[in-house]
């Protein structure tokens, strides 16, 4: 019997991060409701990755607050949000063992682990790869495995930090298909991306960050058609943003 209490909405307020006397994130705030794909975009160093990591609890903000509807986004002892990194972290084990390890880490029973692992591999057509050493798989296979591994944990929210920036177009397309499938299942996705085409294809909402501040928060089509700020206009146009 799974507790179906939702950890959403997520309310991010005044998120600020300072390191080495520099303010890298400056009062970012937004609310996240259930469903859909939210894209974090902006130039390098704008604070996209920092924002994701703080939402996921990997880093503590210097000031500000990440407020889940349920404390820390944990329901019944299980963390209901997961994260996929730019460079997938693959343990030195088989694909299957990678998934089982994550499920064991979050405290699932052995039978639950096996069932979910089999389901995840089947769900994304990776059953053939189950016994392959994960680190010997291609970059695309690794990222798909990372997403399958995250999916196996049944998260309500999935954070993704530029999940396709190191992949070739074919692998990128496969990963995007996976993400659309997750979206269709009702998983709430929050992803950082540099790929504006990808943002247009996947995202329902855009958060545009520049120099640590949230500059624009708009529906995707509106953002690309009528950017409100000069920085966003320049960014969309492909100009350098300062």
């Amino acid at each position: 019997m799974r507790d179906t209490t939702s950890i959403l909405p997520l309310s991010v307020e005044g998120l600020t991060f300072e390191a080495g006397g520099k303010r890298l994130l400056d009062g970012v705030g937004f609310a996240l409701a259930r469903g859909g794909v939210t894209a974090l975009i902006g130039p390098n160093g704008s604070g996209k990755s920092l924002t994701l990591r703080m939402c996921h609890g990997l880093m503590r903000p210097s000031a500000g607050h990440v407020g889940w509807a349920v404390a820390d986004g944990i329901v019944g002892g299980l963390k209901r949000h997961a994260m996929v990194f730019q460079k997938p972290v693959m343990l030195r084990r088989s694909a299957r063992a990678n998934i089982l390890h994550a499920l064991a880490a979050i405290g699932l029973s052995r039978s639950d682990r096996n069932a979910r692992c089999v389901a995840a591999l089947e769900r994304f057509g990776m059953t053939d790869l189950a016994t392959r050493p994960a680190r010997l798989m291609s970059g695309g296979e690794q990222q798909r495995l990372a997403i399958a591994r995250a999916w196996a944990m049944a998260p309500e929210v999935l954070f993704l930090d530029e999940p396709t920036s190191q992949l070739d177009p074919g692998a990128t397309r496969q990963v995007e298909e996976m993400l659309l499938a997750l979206k269709a299942e009702g998983v709430t996705l929050v992803m950082a991306s540099h790929d504006m085409g990808q943002v247009r294809r996947l995202a329902d909402r855009v958060l545009f960050l520049n120099r640590g501040g949230l500059v624009e928060d708009a529906p995707t089509s509106a953002f690309f058609e009528t950017p409100a700020s000069a920085e966003a206009r320049a960014f969309v146009a492909g100009d350098l943003v300062w």
Binding site: R53, H56, L58, K79, A82, M83, F85, V89, L91, R92, R93, H101, A102, A105, I106
Partner: peptide, 27 residues
């Protein structure tokens, strides 16, 4: 250094990361 964020994401911080690291470093 390589595993830290993934393990932290799974809640394996501090000494709870040790078994995974020792096993993966076994060779």
């Amino acid at each position: 250094g390589e595993y830290r964020e993934h393990l932290a994401s799974l809640g394996l911080t501090g000494i709870r990361a040790i078994p995974t690291l020792l096993w993966d470093g076994r060779f």
